[in-house]
């Protein structure tokens, strides 16, 4: 085991994947010589050469279109989009091409691509370095959407994504890139895609969260415990495929749910989770499902801490649902 942060976990996973399979490629803007703007690919070009770890022109459509071509040829690209806010020039290639190649060709051409991209706010990045675009991709058939929350889940889920035969949007919570640290196995391991986990057991209310907000959910659970409320936390980890059963099992136990994400509320992934819970566990609910999310505004700069969900907002929502 080694103590590392999320950046270290990304680097370790990529290092292992590149070392184990010569068909794995890492590329994107400044990922090679410079080692990535967050240093996630530091040292990999020196170790694996400019052919396997390379810099690209500044064109997200070019990066993803290139990845698609390499993938249908039989390679396993792991491109980086420097910030998820920059992913939209590649939206056409992702949504209309990468996501549909397997379906439209009847499995003759497939895209085992893992797109890594930092997402989320809290770094004083304004609206072009802070957004949470997971719902756009979760809405597109043919894409898997994975969001780790700490170094252990980052490494295990990233290696599983690279192994996966289908395209994965791998959203890294950059606010906790360095703040989240923990013990991580040094060797290869995977965590299953399509499995939520119970991050903390409780009996009174279920908090569903992912990414950086998992850490806020934990703080909220501590605050709730001080007020004699026992909160259970579900770490979603994989939005697509969604492990409904783990979420529903928790809801059946607690009867109360608070769903958290940084993305704007309207049509956010929380709406989907709330729909699933109401469709399949309605009679177990003791109170309305509540959401703690970003607001329906563009991501703000100066007031970003007001915009972002935090432990107190989650606490307040839990309090409301428990008192209902």
């Amino acid at each position: 085991m080694a103590n590392m942060n999320i950046i270290g976990a990304v680097n370790s996973a990529l290092d292992l994947a590149l070392g184990a399979d010569e068909d794995v490629f890492v590329f994107g803007e400044d990922v090679g010589k410079f080692g990535g703007v967050f240093r996630a690919t530091d040292g990999l070009q020196d170790k694996y050469g400019e052919g396997r770890v390379f810099d690209t022109p500044l064109s997200e459509a070019g990066i993803i279109g290139t990845a698609i071509g390499m993938a249908i040829y039989g390679l396993k690209p792991v491109p980086e989009i420097q910030f998820s806010d920059f992913i939209f020039p590649a939206f056409d290639q992702i949504v209309n091409e990468m996501a549909k190649f397997r379906y439209r060709s009847g499995g003759q051409y497939t895209c085992p691509i893992t797109i890594r991209t930092p997402y989320g706010g809290g770094i004083r990045g304004g609206h072009y370095h802070s957004q949470s675009p997971e719902a756009y991709f979760a809405h597109t058939a043919g894409l898997k959407v994975v969001i780790p929350s700490d170094p252990y889940t980052t490494k295990g889920l990233l290696l599983a994504s690279i192994d996966d035969p289908d395209p994965v949007i791998f959203l890294e919570p950059k606010r906790v890139y360095r703040a989240s640290k923990g013990e991580v196995p040094e060797g290869h391991y995977t965590l299953p895609l399509g499995k939520c986990t119970i991050d903390r057991e409780g009996t009174d209310v279920t908090i569903v969260a992912y990414g950086a907000l998992l850490h806020e959910a934990r703080k909220a659970a501590d605050l709730l415990a001080e007020n004699d409320v026992s909160a259970e936390i579900v770490d979603v980890r994989t939005l697509v495929p969604l492990d409904e059963e783990t979420i529903l099992e928790s809801v059946r136990k607690t009867g109360r749910v608070v769903i958290c994400h940084e993305a704007a509320r309207t049509c956010g992934f929380g709406g989907e989770l709330a729909a699933v819970i109401s469709e399949k566990a309605l009679l177990h609910l003791e109170a309305p499902i509540l959401r703690v999310t970003g607001y329906d505004t563009p991501f703000p700069y100066t007031l970003e801490q007001q915009y972002l969900p935090d432990a107190f907002k989650i606490f307040e929502a839990c309090e409301t649902t428990v008192d209902f």
Binding site: G65, T66, G69, L75, N96, S105, Q108
Partner: peptide, 27 residues
């Protein structure tokens, strides 16, 4: 689609295939 004769699945979108072809050539 005709992978057996190396004709890549055709998209109705204009121009996306040119970038992908570059990726195949890269490989």
């Amino acid at each position: 689609t005709a992978a057996e004769v190396r004709c890549v699945s055709t998209s109705s979108l204009m121009g996306t295939h040119l970038v992908q072809a570059g990726g195949v050539a890269h490989a």
